[in-house]
Simulated assay, not measured.
Amino acid sequence: MSSIPATEVVIYSTTKELREDPSIVYHTLDLGFTADGVHKPAYSGVQIEDPATGYMFINWDSREKHMAILETPLLQSLQEAMKPIFEGSVKMNHIIFNDHTTAFQQPVTEVLLLTPKDPSHRAEVFDILTKLSDSTKQMLVFGPALEDENEVVVVCGWPSVEAHWETVANPEPKAALERLYTIADKIHHFHTSLTPYSGK
């Protein structure tokens, strides 16, 4: 199996313009695609529960390849292109997921950010997530943020939001998740519908 790239995960406050026309993000992605080490497609979407939050997932050869943009003239062009899209807070992390993700290609993608309540819980958090990942045939994938290993990003693909809640109400996943939320704080847990984009 080919190596798993580092995934740039961007969670941001959306502008009114973006909520009215999500395709305006494509100009920014087109610029990003000119960088060395970026993979196509990128995935973008707004939160189902509240479209004031947006998501972008972009795969790179490595975090270092992405961050190299900071030393190039491309940075200023990207910052200008982002102005019509981002409004207020922007959170960016890089994750190397435990397996190749197909979650982005599903009708609904669950996005969950966790922080173990104590470093001693980290191994058990990963153990629970690994078992959930295996039980979903890697539809659920996860990994620690390269910027902060205490923050874990989980994504899972679903046919619908309702299918997610129905599945996790079953005894086995319910018990696993109850234990997970006993030892880890849920800091972000929402759904989005992502659109792939490979450039114009």
Results as ranks from 00 to 15, higher is better:
residue 1 M to S: 15
residue 2 S to G: 10
residue 7 T to G: 01
residue 8 E to Q: 15
residue 9 V to M: 12
residue 10 V to I: 15
residue 11 I to H: 12
residue 14 T to C: 11
residue 16 K to M: 13
residue 17 E to M: 13
residue 19 R to L: 04
residue 21 D to P: 00
residue 21 D to H: 07
residue 21 D to M: 01
residue 21 D to K: 08
residue 22 P to Q: 05
residue 23 S to D: 13
residue 26 Y to D: 08
residue 27 H to E: 15
residue 29 L to H: 04
residue 31 L to Q: 10
residue 31 L to I: 14
residue 31 L to R: 11
residue 32 G to V: 03
residue 33 F to H: 06
residue 33 F to K: 08
residue 34 T to Y: 00
residue 35 A to Y: 02
residue 37 G to P: 10
residue 37 G to E: 08
residue 38 V to Y: 05
residue 39 H to L: 12
residue 39 H to G: 02
residue 40 K to T: 13
residue 41 P to S: 08
residue 42 A to N: 03
residue 42 A to S: 07
residue 43 Y to V: 11
residue 44 S to R: 01
residue 49 E to G: 04
residue 49 E to S: 06
residue 50 D to S: 08
residue 50 D to R: 06
residue 51 P to E: 10
residue 51 P to A: 10
residue 51 P to V: 10
residue 52 A to R: 14
residue 54 G to K: 08
residue 56 M to L: 15
residue 59 N to K: 12
residue 61 D to Q: 07
residue 63 R to P: 00
residue 63 R to D: 00
residue 65 K to R: 11
residue 67 M to I: 10
residue 67 M to G: 07
residue 67 M to V: 10
residue 68 A to W: 05
residue 68 A to M: 10
residue 70 L to P: 00
residue 70 L to C: 08
residue 71 E to I: 00
residue 76 Q to A: 14
residue 76 Q to M: 09
residue 77 S to L: 12
residue 77 S to N: 12
residue 79 Q to F: 12
residue 79 Q to A: 13
residue 81 A to V: 00
residue 82 M to Y: 10
residue 83 K to T: 15
residue 83 K to R: 15
residue 83 K to G: 06
residue 84 P to F: 12
residue 87 E to K: 15
residue 89 S to W: 11
residue 90 V to H: 09
residue 93 N to T: 11
residue 94 H to I: 03
residue 94 H to P: 06
residue 95 I to D: 03
residue 98 N to C: 03
residue 98 N to S: 03
residue 99 D to P: 00
residue 106 Q to V: 05
residue 107 P to H: 05
residue 109 T to A: 04
residue 109 T to I: 07
residue 112 L to P: 04
residue 112 L to G: 05
residue 116 P to V: 13
residue 117 K to N: 13
residue 118 D to I: 05
residue 119 P to Y: 12
residue 121 H to I: 05
residue 122 R to Y: 15
residue 123 A to S: 15
residue 124 E to P: 03
residue 125 V to P: 00
residue 125 V to W: 02
residue 126 F to N: 14
residue 133 S to G: 03
residue 134 D to F: 14
residue 134 D to P: 01
residue 135 S to W: 10
residue 137 K to N: 15
residue 139 M to D: 02
residue 139 M to I: 01
residue 140 L to D: 02
residue 140 L to R: 02
residue 141 V to S: 04
residue 143 G to Y: 04
residue 145 A to Q: 14
residue 146 L to Q: 13
residue 147 E to V: 03
residue 153 V to Y: 11
residue 154 V to W: 01
residue 155 V to A: 07
residue 156 C to R: 09
residue 158 W to Q: 07
residue 158 W to V: 09
residue 161 V to R: 10
residue 161 V to M: 06
residue 162 E to Y: 02
residue 165 W to H: 09
residue 165 W to A: 02
residue 165 W to K: 04
residue 166 E to H: 06
residue 166 E to D: 08
residue 167 T to V: 06
residue 169 A to D: 09
residue 173 P to R: 01
residue 174 K to L: 04
residue 175 A to G: 01
residue 177 L to P: 13
residue 178 E to Y: 00
residue 178 E to H: 06
residue 178 E to T: 08
residue 181 Y to E: 02
residue 182 T to N: 04
residue 185 D to A: 14
residue 186 K to C: 13
residue 189 H to F: 15
residue 190 F to P: 00
residue 193 S to A: 07
residue 194 L to K: 10
residue 194 L to M: 14
residue 196 P to E: 07
